[in-house]
Design a protein around this nucleic acid. Sequence first.
DNA 1: TTGACATATTCCTATATGGGAATATATTAA
DNA 2: TTAATATATTCCCATATAGGAATATGTCAA
Lengths: 111, 111
Amino acid sequence: MARAATTSDAFNAVAEPRRRHILNYLAMRERSVTEIVDAMAIEQPSVSKHLKVLKGVGLVEVRREGRKMFYTVNANAIRPLHEWTSTFERLWKHQLLRIKERAEANDAQKP
Amino acid sequence: MARAATTSDAFNAVAEPRRRHILNYLAMRERSVTEIVDAMAIEQPSVSKHLKVLKGVGLVEVRREGRKMFYTVNANAIRPLHEWTSTFERLWKHQLLRIKERAEANDAQKP
DNA sequence: TTGACATATTCCTATATGGGAATATATTAA
DNA sequence: TTAATATATTCCCATATAGGAATATGTCAA
């Protein structure tokens, strides 16, 4: 079996850094394809392809206005990723605490 | 150009659902490869390959004990994903608020 | 040393990219 | 209608899978 399709879910879709950049850019506000192309250093066909992937997993939504297409982030589609990573928050906080404790123990030893 | 390697960063590594399952399982505590194989419904060679990818991006660490290898999550490597998704938190909260407001406005109209 | 156990690696293959180039489609303006 | 603008799609190709099967490596026990 090959790797899962980029359109299979949000996890696969945001694995591509350019798609994350596009989402970051759209986080400010709605943007047309041309604006995205100008902001990133990517060719227009590539941008359209990335937008298609993002749309496929519901990470963006589109609105037409004349010949322009305006894309917006659908933040809700990012929540599953946020929630999955949150399950490890307790762990890294605990790990940081242990590192801090070790550092303080060292400081106490050699004044 | 092809898709970025699964070992290029944590984003690509966790795009694969079985690797997320492994990380979830390791979140409880350290586990040997055999324990992981028994817990998931995956063949041992596949598990070893997934662990290699996870190790490649620093998402897990290994410790040998006799012929067993014990893997642990390195939660810190998940933080970049958490932080990236957090930049959209404001957006989905805002979107939820608007949905709620609309619902309340509807309720007020038809008693 | 030999065998058993635990884990990793290699080889194979179908599949899905992402970029570049060229082209198609849609919409507005003249 | 025709030209121009805005966006999407298609074709081509090098590359990287993920799983299955077989095998290799490493470690302990007898």
